[in-house]
Computed example of a mutant assay.
Amino acid sequence: MRAEDPPVRAEGPAVPEDLLSAVLAPVRLRGVYSSHWSVRAPWSVRGRREPCAVVHYLCEGSCAVSMPGRASPLWLGPGDLALFPHGAEHTLADAPATAAVPLEALLPGRRPGSVGRVSIDGPGEAARLLCGGLHYDEAAAPPLYRALPEVVVLEAAAVAGEPLLQAVLEWLSAGADRGAPGAELVELRAFETVFVLALRVAALRAGVSSPLLRALRHPGIARALLAVHTRFAEPWSLEALAAEAGMSRSAFASAFRGLVGETPGAHLLGRRMQEAARLLGETPVALSAVPERVGYGSTVGFHLAFRKRFGVTPGEYRRRCEGDGQDGGRERALPE
């Protein structure tokens, strides 16, 4: 998404949900840091880019969201939800002109699994926000996830149209379960639910400003993407993927590149290499069995492609993963 593009806002038709699940399933959430904000104008807080998805839910009041490269701020009102899939740098404020303080000065550390509170007193209008930083393994994110827009805004009406999303946000905003047995895991699952439901609402109803979300809503391209993400081991060719999409070869190639940002062949290669890395790093599947599992009839061809992508051979990659300690607890996949 270009910096000058407008944010994605809820509004329109439908997309195969299986494809969204295929995009989100490989993303591994490691934990969530949540914070509750109670502020009165004037106030302004600037957050740098972080390796996590960021969620802001405005419980009451209003606030401006400013981002580098964006000429005008976004305005959030009561019940609005803003999602930053890649943790893009942004500033929250009562007004764009208010001088900002760094988030780190108010909430240092922000360790996943903990909760923080921001309180800023002033003579002006009050606002209350729920914020969450969902830490995930960036390397595990598939190409389609990385192509999500830098910010997705769901207005209050769109949130209210998804009763489960609204109920979970209200439960999280209340913060009543902290300290109870299993509270940290419950909160993680609740934020996972918010994350998935918010993206689903955006994918189902988004306007045309985001090429990726348009790809998810394009019947032919969505079918081809679902095939690539779930049936990557099949011997796909450009012609076969075009047939899967129900389009001519040239029309498919042009539409796919325009919406996804790369050729069908490059996207298929990326998905195969991602799965190969998962098999090597997270499973005991024999090294000799990996090429066939990801669609390669030639072991040599697989080794060359893997080394070009990761800079090491498949065997070296596995040994490196084993040496990293297999696990400080493998990250969990998002719910499908």
Rank of each mutant, 00 (worst) to 15 (best):
R2H: 10
D5N: 07
P7D: 04
P16C: 06
S21P: 00
L24F: 11
P26G: 00
P26S: 03
R30A: 11
S34N: 00
S34K: 08
W37F: 13
P42K: 02
S44V: 14
R46A: 12
V54E: 10
H56C: 13
Y57Q: 10
S66K: 02
G69D: 04
R70S: 05
S72G: 00
W75M: 13
F84K: 00
H86D: 10
G87D: 06
G87I: 11
G87T: 08
E89Y: 00
H90W: 10
A93S: 15
D94L: 12
P96N: 00
A97W: 15
A97V: 15
G109H: 02
R117I: 15
S119N: 03
P123C: 03
A127F: 14
A127G: 04
A127N: 02
R128Y: 06
C131Y: 07
G132D: 05
L134P: 06
H135V: 15
E138A: 14
E138M: 11
A139C: 06
A140L: 10
A141E: 06
P143Q: 00
R146Q: 05
A147I: 11
L148R: 01
P149L: 05
A157Q: 06
P163D: 03
A167N: 01
V168W: 06
W171R: 14
S173V: 11
A174C: 10
L188G: 06
E192R: 03
T193K: 05
V201A: 07
V201D: 05
A202K: 01
R205P: 02
S210Y: 05
P211I: 12
P211C: 04
R214P: 02
A222L: 12
A222P: 09
V228T: 08
E239D: 15
E244F: 01
A251N: 05
A255N: 03
R257E: 13
V260T: 07
G261A: 04
A266T: 12
G270T: 03
A277Q: 01
R278L: 13
G281K: 02
P284Y: 01
Y296N: 05
K308M: 12
F310Q: 09
F310H: 11
G311C: 11
G311D: 13
C321F: 07
Q326P: 14
G328W: 15
G328L: 15
E331W: 13
E336C: 12
E336S: 10
